[in-house]
């Protein structure tokens, strides 16, 4: 798959500052597109973000999207994205633009503070708005009913949750959350990591392991 560098993110609702493709070493055709979607409202999250920005520097086709910068309408459960304008949400806001970025990425990383073993509110609002990525019909996947994907290809997801005082129940639930996200939306390989302190930052490096898959590190 070929994706062109310097993603043309033309939708005006997203400020340039919030969508920062890391500049590649050279312009031209690249093989992969990586998207890091982060909701880091606290110092620990900002610290992790800085680590990733440093570690992944130089990877072409990598972009960071800051959920804190973008107000998003929560899903209304209207099903218009299935039945009136298939594949498109009724709200034309940042979430709609970000979902488009996800659909067209090869790998996507979600970073957020664990909230009761699951997603932060901002990330969850975005994920709810991803309903347009599946079809209304049912299929059986791993013995359970799910919705089939609308798009043939799905980005390989990487779910990262962080928190300083996490207990065992929260961490177990977050692992399950990651698995469910994969079964529902992605149905590909999936990595879920939990970051409790600086010693765990390296767990994010496997997303950067994509360097060997086409990035120019």
């Amino acid at each position: 798959m070929k994706v062109y560098v310097h993603l043309m993110f033309t939708v005006s609702t997203l400020a340039d500052a919030a969508l920062k493709p890391v500049q590649g070493a050279a312009e031209g055709v690249i093989e992969m597109k990586y998207t890091i979607i982060h909701d880091c409202p606290d110092p620990m999250g900002q610290d992790i973000l800085r680590y990733m920005q440093d570690s992944f520097k130089g990877i072409e086709g990598l972009q960071f999207i800051d959920l804190q910068s973008h107000p998003m309408e929560p899903c209304t459960g209207c099903f218009n994205c299935w039945l009136k304008t298939p594949g498109l949400c009724i709200f034309h806001d940042a979430a709609a633009d970000i979902v488009k970025e996800i659909v067209n990425s090869d790998r996507v990383l979600f970073l957020n503070p664990l909230t009761w073993g699951a997603y932060s509110p901002q990330l969850k609002i975005l994920l709810d708005r991803s309903l347009c990525r599946v079809l209304p019909f049912f299929e059986t996947h791993k013995g359970e009913t799910h919705h089939p994907s609308r798009y043939e290809k799905s980005p390989i997801p990487f779910l990262a949750g962080y928190g300083a005082d996490l207990d065992q129940d929260e961490m177990e639930l977050f692992k399950s959350t990651g698995q469910n996200l994969n079964d529902n939306l992605h149905k590909t390989g999936m990595e879920t990591v939990i970051i409790r302190n600086r010693d765990d930052f390296h767990l994010l490096d496997s997303f950067a392991g994509t360097k060997s898959m086409g990035g120019a590190a």
Binding site: P74, C75, G77, T115, A118, Y119, S120, P121, Q122, K124, I125, L126, L127, D128, S130, L131, T177, N180, L181, N184, L185
Partner: peptide, 17 residues
């Protein structure tokens, strides 16, 4: 509540927090 993408709807998560 309804199940939204495996867990709670985003707006409910926000209000509970």
């Amino acid at each position: 509540l309804p199940l939204y993408i495996d867990v709670l709807p985003g707006h409910l998560t926000w209000w509970l927090r």
